[in-house]
Every structure is written in C-alpha cells, then in structure tokens.
Simulated scan of single mutants.
Amino acid sequence: MYMQIKQEKGHYTLYKESEAIGTAVVDGAAILRLEIVPAWRGRGYGSYLVKELLRRGGGLDPKQATRFTAPLPRDEAGRALARRFDFVAEGGRLVRRRVPDLSAVELCHEFLELHVTPGGLYLDATCGNGNDTLFLCRLAGQNGRVLAMDIQQKAVDRTNKRLTDAGYEKVGRAVLYDHAKLGKLVQPGKVDCVLFNFGWLPGAEHTVHSTAQGSLSALCAALDALRPGGVLGAVLYSGKVIGDAEKQAALAFFRSLPLTKYTVLVCEFANWADTAPLPCFVIKK
C-alpha cells in the first residue's frame, strides 16, 4: 500500500493512501511528539516514521555524528520502539547518540596531523579523486608544497580541479605519473610525508588498480625520498576483485624494515573483517 510523509516546517504527517495514520513534531534533532492512530498501532508504522525522521536528520549516516532526543515513552510499546532505535533514558528524556565509525583513511589522516609539520614537501602517490591530496594541501599550508600523481588521467584532472576549487592550486598539483618511479620526481631525503591509498580509483573500473610489484617499487622509492623524521602513510586493501597479493607483499616489506632505520606501525581493526582496509605507517629515523 502507498505510504508517504508530508512535512510542513517541523510537523510530519504519515499517510497510508489518503488517510493520515501518524504525526510527529520535530525541532531540529529533538522529536517533541510522535503519535500513531490507535487503529494502526502494532503494525510497524511507528518504526517507519521514526526511521524516516532519523534518516532525514542524518541519524542513519555512519559517517555523521548525531544526537537526537525524545520524550520518555508512556507505555511498553513506546519503550520497545525506543530500544529498537537505540534511544536510552538520560536526564528525564530519551537520547540517541551516533558516533561515526573511524575509517582507515581517517585514522591515517589523524596520525599524519600529529606527526607532520606544516610548510614541508608532501607526496600523494595515489591521488585518485583528490581527497588525500586536498588533505595534504591543508596540512602543508600556504608555505608547503604537495605533489600528487596517478596513472589515470581522469584522476589527475579531478584532483587538479578539486585543488583549484578549494583555492590550493598554488600549493599542490597532480601529474600523470607511475608512483613506482616517484624517485625520479624528487631528490632523496627531501620529502616530509608520502601518502599511499592503494586499490582502485573510486567510481572507476575496478579492473584498474595498483599491484604488488608496482607498489613495492613505489614504497622503496618513497622511503628513499623521505627525510629523517619523515612519515610514510599507506592504506592497504584486499578483496574479491584485487585479492590480497598487494596487501601481503606490502606487509612483508614493512615488517622486513630494520628497526635501526625505521619505526613501523600496522594498525589493525581487531573486530573488523580480514578484508578491512589496513592503515600502516613508517617513520624514518
């Protein structure tokens, strides 16, 4: 049967066909009132309405931090509905908090923010759509420089457009280049940070992706390019399409680095799947 929710300012009405069967009043992230017509209770329409309110307020987005409130329920059905959507009693009302999941890329960015000083030279060895390049430009600041590279022209074009749109065209630029040969673009021991986000270009064909052979050459060249105290960050991937050859080869490479020259961190998400992205860091001594 056809259902829809009509909204007028903070008032929501749930319709089944042409009949109004539920209403809600919302102020920002505060659900002030929610009612289902008695004849329609116990059929899932309350859950439908709550879920839609949360969705419209970003409460179902795993990447967004949200906090919703609602009045304490008056009956067991209301309490069951609250539990279903993770509302808990707090200070005389219901509260639902959503803390965003920490992704491998976000962890990599947070680590680099703590260990890299603005004003240096940074390399994005796999620029993709430009997310990491833009992050490095912000990290570098107006006195720093960022060089990005990719083997796909569409990635280079998207990255350069993104930098221009954000006002960082004088800080960073992307070039069409194989990261396995990045040592030819920079002098040894002059780079403050090199960032790798292996795998494929988001939104493009998955058949084009980095490989173990090319990535190992790129990692070796990146370590040569780093200055003492410089940091290499890499996010490794595996899965049905690309397998795990690159991931395992990179891990073996990292673990073989001598402690006298490098500090190596492999940051595993212990309660994620084995195919989850794996952030790794190398600090050159």
Rank of each mutant, 00 (worst) to 15 (best):
H206D: 15
L114V: 14
F198M: 15
V194P: 04
R138M: 04
E113M: 12
V194D: 03
G189R: 12
G172C: 09
L139F: 09
V116Y: 03
L163M: 11
A140Q: 02
E205W: 03
D178V: 12
R158T: 13
L182M: 15
N143S: 08
E169G: 12
R162L: 07
L121Y: 04
D124E: 08
V171Y: 07
G167A: 01
L195Y: 10
L163E: 05
K190V: 10
L114A: 15
D132I: 04
G128C: 07
L134M: 01
Q153R: 13
V175L: 10
Y168W: 08
K161V: 00
W200D: 02
Y168K: 05
F135M: 10
Y177T: 01
D132P: 01
A174Y: 05
Q187R: 14
D157A: 12
D157Y: 04
G183H: 10
L185K: 11
A174K: 11
N131W: 06
K190W: 12
H206Y: 14
E113H: 02
P202L: 10
D165T: 13
I151E: 11
T117Y: 08
K184E: 14
N197P: 05
D124R: 09
M149R: 02
K154N: 12
E205P: 05
F198H: 15
C127E: 07
A204P: 00
L123P: 04
D165G: 08
Q153V: 01
G119F: 11
V116G: 03
H179Q: 11
G189D: 11
G130W: 06
G144C: 12
L134P: 03
K154A: 13
G203N: 04
V194K: 03
E110H: 15
G130M: 03
F135C: 06
Y122P: 01
R138H: 11
E110F: 14
G144L: 06
R145Y: 05
D157H: 07
G199L: 14
V171A: 07
H179W: 05
V175E: 07
F198E: 13
G183F: 13
